[in-house]
């Protein structure tokens, strides 16, 4: 279980960007962190990965303060543009002892990426695929995905959405932020609503649908319009 407790963050005059944020991400479930733009969703993911310092709070995996169990797939390209896809994979393989080369090659084939393709020359969608490929091949139990479906074509979205229902998700706890709720509604196990840096609702998605008689997307509209 990935546990986030009491996260607080302020930026200068911008106080309480994150205000005592606490939630859990269980294994074998896809948890979706929902909020409008600027609510702090990406900040939470980055804080979990230690990319952004926080003023207070703890992040634990199975009771231990450790980041080695978490992989992060950001919403932008993080590999140097001069690298080819093959070189990027080799780079990651060198640094991560648990790297799963088989998964990397399978996903490279699935996404129709060539090892010789230079990352700088890839489209936004293909760069997103490379990010995802790296995230899964890192072979870590927890995976954080920041807007994996943002700004890409329908076909690529479908490919990525397929991954979320495939065997690649087995044994993983996923925390995802996305605005494309409709695309992944059927996959979401848990929902967390974030507003003004505070968690306003955290529920099992099925229970939420039963309770409110609405889809998660409709419930979201309701929450953010009031």
């Amino acid at each position: 279980m990935l546990e986030v407790r009491g996260l607080r963050k302020s930026y200068g005059r911008k106080k309480n960007v994150l205000n005592d944020v606490s939630f859990t991400v269980p294994l074998n479930q896809l948890t979706c962190l929902i909020g409008l733009n600027g609510e702090g969703k990406s900040t939470i993911l980055k804080a979990i990965m230690g990319l952004v310092p926080v003023d207070a709070g703890t992040i634990k995996v199975d009771g231990k303060t450790i980041h080695d169990s978490i992989a992060f797939v950001p919403d932008l390209s993080t590999m140097p543009g001069y690298m080819s896809v093959g070189e990027a994979i080799a780079y990651m393989r060198d640094y991560y002892p648990d790297w799963n080369q088989q998964v990397a090659e399978e996903l490279m084939g699935f996404f129709k990426l060539m090892a010789t393709d230079r990352i700088a020359n890839l489209s936004k969608g293909n760069k997103a695929k490379v990010n995802l490929l790296i995230g899964f091949a890192m072979n870590r139990p927890y995976l954080l995905l920041d807007e994996p479906l943002a700004g890409i074509d329908l076909f690529t979205k479908e490919q990525i959405a397929w991954i979320f229902s495939s065997h690649y998700m087995e044994g993983k706890g996923i925390l995802m932020t996305t605005h494309e709720i409709a695309e992944v509604e059927h996959l979401i196990d848990r929902v967390i609503f974030l507003q003004n840096g505070t968690i306003i609702q955290e529920d099992d998605s099925e229970e939420m649908r039963e309770l409110y008689g609405k889809s998660v997307q409709d419930r979201m509209r309701e929450v953010y319009q009031t």
Partner: peptide, 14 residues
């Protein structure tokens, strides 16, 4: 500020 945010990758390296 490069064409990719390599700093993410660097800071997350084990």
């Amino acid at each position: 500020y490069g064409e990719s945010k390599y700093i993410y990758r660097l800071l997350m390296l084990p």
